[in-house]
Design a binder for these strands. Structure first.
Length: 586
RNA sequence: GCCCCGGUAGCUCAGCGGAUAGAGCAGCCGCCUCCUAAGCGGCAGGUCGCAGGUUCGACUCCUGCCCGGGGCACCA
């Protein structure tokens, strides 16, 4: 509809230019808005206001000239000039009926664009280190990433979703050692646990697995493990030096196979846990991309070589540095450390190169807000690889803070006292969690009210929307009980009978839906969907209370059933995009 | 100090440069012999942090300041 109006205006402008009523060389960047006030029509255009200066005429005068030359359209009932010179378009009843027909015909795909109409997008999100279960912060990234991917797809993009698995770095070694030490405890040893180790209860679970597979084969005395290690932080030393030495000690004592046993068990257990957790959350990936694989496949080396070939690397103090400061970053970054190991940043560059080669369109990075410092260095890396940095897009997801009983729930990863995503899902349910995570703009801090999310009352927006959907299905169940059958063609022929203001409001809201999807995709803003769905649900509840559907008049009844069905399609389709179920009964 | 996000109703937040700034919750008043009251209707509630600037027009864009949250590493 919006495109249709745009076309009408362009035609009118063409006539005016041809007749010399407007300068020929102007191409006004006008907008077509949805006015808030219904008396301002369904669409409003500011073309006259934009044109006023260039044309040297009053806005209202131009508005009248444009209005006079607008071609007739079956979808437009009338055009008015209002305020300082807005053109207000009122959609015709014919248009409203078309909208209902389209929603019924397209079902859950109503408002979607054909796949491939817009460019490819490779979205990377969550990508949490597999060193522990996902916590509620990851949950927001997961919910946002999944929802924004779905809405991009609906808007015609071809989207690939990836999870980057950091299975190569130092943190994984620390995890492996933490598991080993807990394993030793299970064997009856009393090794000292490092300040920097992972302390969560889940480490014992993994250690038990190691023990059941390997018995006492990996057992060493606590004294042997600790012998000659540099002091830990709480002993007055450096926790980093301590843990690195401890990792080395583990490798020496266990040998490659023994160490791998701890490492692999930890990695696989954590990945299975994360994968299952996300699946239960309705978040699925096309690919789990392993950092280790970058090393094995030579991609890491190739990326470094490419930066080098571009003249962007230099050596200093035994390390290889990337001249990112010359490419927009605050400072240079190390890619190969003095000890010969590559940095995480090097892996990031290699992964980026791989993605750029696999995807012709945008690379969408969805990061936690704490990673905002990555943006300039990754853009610098893209430049260093000879790629256009505009192909990288970053969306930063701000933190979520949980509240229970009005109290903030404190979290600390180190101590292992954090709320996991799984805990959250079990407490409030996946639907509420998905909805609450995306109901606010992702670049806003989120206060997540657990009590509200759990509430099964009208104050909970999730249930409010789901209830609207369930109510519609309830009507159809009642229909049969009354001995009626829904006849969609009778309803279609009788759509003219839908004249109640609440019915018209519903039709208008359905008509807006394709624009909501389009705008939400452009703005990377799935919260727009949450708002639009809430609004549609509200309109339905209003209509439901004011206008009975199951009336004796067959034409009217079927027309109302068609409308109700159309509303249900939009609700179900929209909820699906944000990963919330649309129950038929509650 | 530098960087990121924010400051809109009592609370949590919408608001793509446009018309009289919206919603939910909380508060108050009403509505179930009627398709689910997990609902609906109504009332009340605002110096859009402050000061400049750009614009025909600023909650929206720019600058400065104030206040809150977060981030700074040869950690990940």
């Amino acid at each position: 509809m919006r495109a249709h109006i745009e076309e009408l205006i362009h035609q009118a402008l063409g006539y005016l230019k041809r007749d010399g009523d407007l300068p020929r060389d102007i191409e006004p960047a006008f907008q077509i808005d949805r006015p808030r006030d219904p008396s301002h029509g369904d669409y409003a255009c500011n073309v006259a206001l934009v044109l006023a200066k260039a044309a040297g005429r009053k806005p209202r005068e131009i508005a009248e000239a444009v209005a006079a030359r607008l071609p007739d359209s079956k979808r437009i009932a009338r055009v008015e000039i209002a305020g300082p010179g807005f053109l207000n378009f009122h959609a015709s009843d014919h248009h409203l009926r078309c909208v209902v027909r389209e929603a019924l015909a397209d079902g859950p795909a109503f408002g979607h664009q054909p796949a491939g109409r817009r460019g490819d997008v490779l979205a990377e999100f969550v990508s949490a280190n597999p060193t522990g279960p996902l916590h509620v912060g990851h949950g927001r990234g997961a919910a946002y990433g999944a929802s924004v991917s779905a809405v991009l797809e609906a808007a015609g993009h071809v989207v690939k979703r990836e999870y980057y698995v950091n299975d190569y770095g130092r943190q994984m070694d620390i995890l492996a050692v933490s598991v080993w030490l807990r394993y030793l405890e299970l064997c009856g040893e009393k090794p000292r646990f490092p300040d920097n180790g992972y302390r969560g209860e889940y480490i014992y679970d993994i250690a038990r697995q190691v023990r059941s597979r390997h018995g006492d084969d990996l057992r060493f005395s606590g004294a042997t493990v600790a012998e000659g290690l540099p002091a830990d932080e709480s002993e007055g030393g450096d926790k980093e030096k301590h843990i690195d030495a401890l990792v080395q000690r583990a490798r020496d004592l266990l040998g490659e196979d023994g160490y791998e046993a701890c490492f692999q068990t930890a990695l696989e257990t954590m990945l299975d846990d994360i994968r299952g957790d996300l699946e239960d959350f309705g978040v699925v990936f096309d690919r789990w991309f392993s950092e280790r694989e970058l090393e094995r496949s030579g991609a890491l080396e190739r990326a470094i070589a490419k930066l080098d070939a571009g003249g962007w690397l230099y050596e200093e103090q035994g390390a290889k540095w990337f001249k990112s400061s010359e490419l927009g970053d605050d400072k240079d970054r190390v890619v190969v450390r003095e000890n010969g190991r590559t940095t995480y940043f090097a892996s990031d560059v290699a992964y980026m190169l791989d993605k750029l080669e696999r995807c012709s369109g945008q690379l969408l990075y969805i990061f936690g807000a704490d990673h905002h410092g990555y943006v300039p260095r990754l853009k610098a890396a893209a430049r260093g690889l000879g790629e256009n940095p505009d192909r990288l897009e970053f969306q930063l997801v701000q933190f979520a803070v949980l509240y229970r009983g009005g109290e903030k729930i404190q979290m600390s990863t180190r101590s292992g006292e954090f709320t996991t995503l799984r805990d959250l899902r079990e407490e409030v349910g996946s639907d509420a969690a998905r909805y609450f995570y995306v109901m606010r703009s992702h670049d806003q801090h989120l206060d997540f009210d657990l009590d509200l999310a759990k509430s099964r009352a009208n104050e909970n927006p999730v249930y409010y929307i789901q209830y609207a959907h369930a109510r519609i299905h309830s009507i159809f169940r009642q229909l049969e009980g009354k001995g009626y059958k829904h006849n969609a063609s009778i309803g279609d022929a009788a759509l003219k009978r839908l004249t109640e203001p609440q019915e018209r409001a519903l039709m208008q809201a359905i008509g807006r839906w394709p624009e909501v999807i389009d705008s939400a995709a452009r703005r990377r803003a799935p919260h727009d969907l949450a708002h639009a769905l809430h609004e549609l649900a509200s309109m339905f509840h209003t209509c439901y209370n004011a206008v009975p559907v199951l009336v004796d008049d067959e034409d009217l009844r079927n027309a109302r059933l068609n409308l109700a069905r159309a509303v249900a399609e939009v609700l179900a389709g929209g909820l699906k995009l944000i990963g919330v179920s649309a129950p038929e009964q509650m």
